[in-house]
Design a protein around this nucleic acid. Structure first.
Lengths: 327, 327
DNA sequence: CTGAAAGCGCTAACAT
DNA sequence: ATGTTAGCGCTTTCAG
């Protein structure tokens, strides 16, 4: 691999000059630029980013952490969509990603990270405080409800829930249940709060029940319990599509007709909801938008390390499908 | 951030010693280790990986490239599963990942990569030759059918196809169609070859048709065409689960009973196949296994940069579900 | 408009 | 068992 010195020598200029034609951080004579570029091309020279990062102390790598573990989140297509969004947007901003392992690993080379994107952190997420303390700028997808102050980009899920409730009551569903999880991630908190408030406001009966984890199986178990009651809910909402699918399965197994006897609603509008039978009413959020905004914030931090934290809020929109359309 | 020099000074030893207590590359007196560790702890010192990489010329970062684009691959849960597998295995080997953008970006800092993992490359994949030329070791998931010599870990999909054909003919499906794609990735090539050969061997009628891309929609369109024929196939196989789902939808829309009038088979055994209605017969591969093997190879290269390339082949196993069980 | 030279934080001969 | 020192490849004052 040719180094900056090789190029300088062959082109008959100093390394300083070569450095500047590549960084563009100071004016260089057009003829010199021409010559240097040519030599560099010929020698197959590419600036070494590691050396550059070391010299400047400014990295262009951002950490990426998905808080996915034993539970079913790992199968949630939402994450793939987000990932694609990140990959796409990274090209525009010149960032490159480093995947952070699931468990906090003190050996991770935080010196090489300018910041980190953390997806759906729970308040116990160890990476957020860890990285923040080391001086990394952090942007979370959905909010971090722990102590550390960070930037975030999130959807207005509460708003989405209100749309859901309007729709359900319009369709004649008045006895509702929300299947949530104990893990206090912001999306669960927001959805629950809006659910309780919205049911009160509309005079709907609404109960929140908890599944042991985010899997469809766990949701299915809870749904079966709900449907076995003498006064079962007429509509069940899952905090993520995955769980709503579990409800769908429970209903099918128990011979409960959807949407006639039971309305089912999910959140996120992943492929799963379109492919469900019947197709699932859900709340749409835009993963690519989330990714793009997150990277925009990150880029702001890169330009100005002292740029203050920001909280971006994107809309969430109800998508009506067959699982709640009583005709 | 404390540097190695701060630690050395405070601990009253040389930087060399500090370096060695952290790298373990030479014996250091227990007492010294103790003292250095203590000071480091107190000062919050962490070795700077960027500097280390520069000094050693040996990085522990591996590039990760998913050849996902406009087509539906981005929604294929298989990738999430692989990703989780990579993340899990990386902990064991001490690797960390750098996501490579979809399009070849010459500005990517290949100097910081010891190697790259490329998932399902088509023969036109630009990253493989690019990185190989820069001296990165490459491991592909499924084989790279282009010119460049690389290591790979792959499943024996041909074997899986033979199991599929045995099963189908056993169930009385004798007029088969395989929906594949024009993109000549190794999985499509392998599956097609085994399909043709297997049908011949068993005296089954077998036709390969092509969808415009890997999406369920494209597969659905092709399936509709197939089913509208005067002599429609009695079983349709999709090269990935996603496409088989499209077939399922086409059948449903056209009132064709699955599995009675039509058998449907997919590949990969993603969540989608379990959640399909009816559940999809498919060929199971193990994403975590693939990830683990790939990283094992990569680690071998890290230990010995001259370690020869290797081609790992993992099994693929038929999973019989309702979509082909004629009772 | 261009150079010289001092680092960035760490490793690895080469010494002792 | 430990230390000295010369880099790794690049950026960046400070000079010209």
């Amino acid at each position: 691999m040719a180094t900056i010195r090789d190029v300088a020598r062959v082109a008959g200029v100093s390394v300083t000059t070569v450095s500047h034609v590549f960084s563009g951080r100071r004016k260089v004579a057009p003829a010199t630029i021409q010559a240097v570029t040519e030599v560099a091309e010929r020698l197959g020279y590419r600036p070494n980013g590691v050396a550059r990062t070391l010299a400047t102390g400014k990295s262009t790598t951002v950490g990426l952490h998905f808080e996915i573990g034993e539970d079913a989140l790992l199968l949630n297509p939402f994450f793939s969509e987000l990932l694609v969004g990140f990959a796409a947007a990274s090209a525009d901003y010149g960032f490159t990603f480093k995947l952070l392992p699931h468990d906090l690993d003190v050996n991770v080379d935080s010196a090489s990270l300018m910041g980190a994107l953390v997806v759906d952190p729970s308040p116990q997420n160890p990476w957020v405080p860890f990285l923040a303390r080391r001086g990394s700028r952090i942007v979370t997808i959905s909010r971090f409800l722990g102590e550390t102050e960070v930037s975030s980009v999130d959807n207005d899920l509460g708003d989405g829930m209100h749309e859901v409730l309007d729709h359900l009551s319009e369709q004649g569903y008045h006895n509702l249940a929300l299947i949530s999880v104990r893990q206090r991630a912001s999306y669960a908190v927001d959805i629950e709060a809006a659910f309780r408030e919205g049911c009160d406001q509309r005079g709907l009966k609404g109960e929140v029940v908890f599944a042991s984890d985010l899997s469809d199986r766990a949701a299915r178990r809870v749904a079966i319990e709900l449907l076995e009651r003498r006064d079962p809910p007429t509509a069940i909402i899952g905090v993520i599509d995955h769980m709503a699918l579990g409800v769908l399965h429970a209903a099918q197994e128990m011979g409960v007709a959807v949407p006639e006897a039971l309305g089912v609603v999910g959140f996120n509008d992943t492929v799963l909801s379109r492919h469900a039978v019947p197709p699932l009413t859900t709340v749409r959020i835009e993963p690519e938008e989330l990714a793009r905004e997150a990277l925009r914030l990150m880029h702001g931090f890169w330009l100005d390390p002292n740029c203050p934290d920001e909280e971006i809020r994107l809309p969430a929109q109800l998508v009506k499908r067959a699982s709640t359309q009583r005709a």
